[in-house]
Design a protein around this nucleic acid. Structure first.
Lengths: 151, 151
DNA sequence: CTTGAAACTCACATGAC
DNA sequence: GTCATGTGAGTTTCAAG
């Protein structure tokens, strides 16, 4: 991971459909050298995959919520039960174990407040391992994720 | 956005480099019909862009932190000052205005605890509009974002 | 919506410097 | 690392049903 690799990754994070020729131009490398680096970044696992990025509103996911979760205990069985429940819910887009007052932070997207209420009432709050939850509704997004900042 | 469009989007969120032929096969449509739908989804803004997804650890961003932020007030000048400061910090990957005790939730990635300390001490806590912050260090990620769940 | 064909771009491998 | 080159694959468009 030298400076050229970071440039490549930065560009590909914004637009993975850029042609090798254009990419090599922008980083000041020959086409074949650039191509070789990209393939190396892929096989090294630096570049995981290529994905289409979707407009959340355009697909009707109008409600985005962050949820802090506290478990009954840190015992293995509670952790595993919670993780398993999270894995089974596709509306939970991400889930992080965190330090602080709560144990986990999750991001959830659903179509409507009613859908969130249903999810919350009948599928989240019923997880036995969960003792407490705090919902933070995302009112609007000031800054969206557009790739990691390198360097 | 019918069912076929949702199928297309779901596949492209996981792998945008799938060939049109393979994509059309998987959704059960002819190549040209499938191609037309993809282009429509792009021009309609449903598909925003195509991006390489990077392994955070592989690029040395070992520290991921969520930060809740409370402002001094909800006055326009405080909000704008905060947003402006956020926009200028590339380490802040996302920032959402939220309901609840705090006003904003941010995600930050840096290379080391020392880097976070420096960011926190000299660039975050010095924003005049900010009255309080709460740092939640991400210990590990149970579920990673891999695209929205449609349908 | 379908099939099929033509034109074009680019990826990829190769060999040479 | 740099060029130059050729083949195959995939994209894109178009005509016709």
């Amino acid at each position: 991971m030298d400076d050229l690799d970071r440039k490549i990754v930065t560009i590909l994070q914004q637009d993975s459909q850029v042609s090798m020729a254009a990419l090599s131009d922008r980083i000041g490398l020959s086409l074949s050298a650039c191509h070789r680096r990209v393939k190396l970044l892929e096989s090294a696992g630096v570049i995981r995959n290529y994905a289409a990025q979707i407009d959340r509103a355009a697909v009707g996911l109008d409600v985005q919520v962050f949820i802090e979760v506290k478990l009954n205990s840190q015992r293995r069985e509670d952790l595993e039960a919670f993780e398993k429940a999270v894995a089974l819910m596709p509306e939970i887009l991400e889930c992080h174990m965190i330090t602080g007052e709560f144990d986990f932070l999750m991001r959830v997207c659903v179509r409507s407040p009613a859908d969130y209420e249903a999810l919350y009432r009948s599928r989240l709050s019923t997880i036995p391992a969960v003792s407490q939850m705090k919902t933070m509704l995302s009112l609007w997004t000031n800054k969206e994720f557009r790739g990691f900042h390198l360097g």
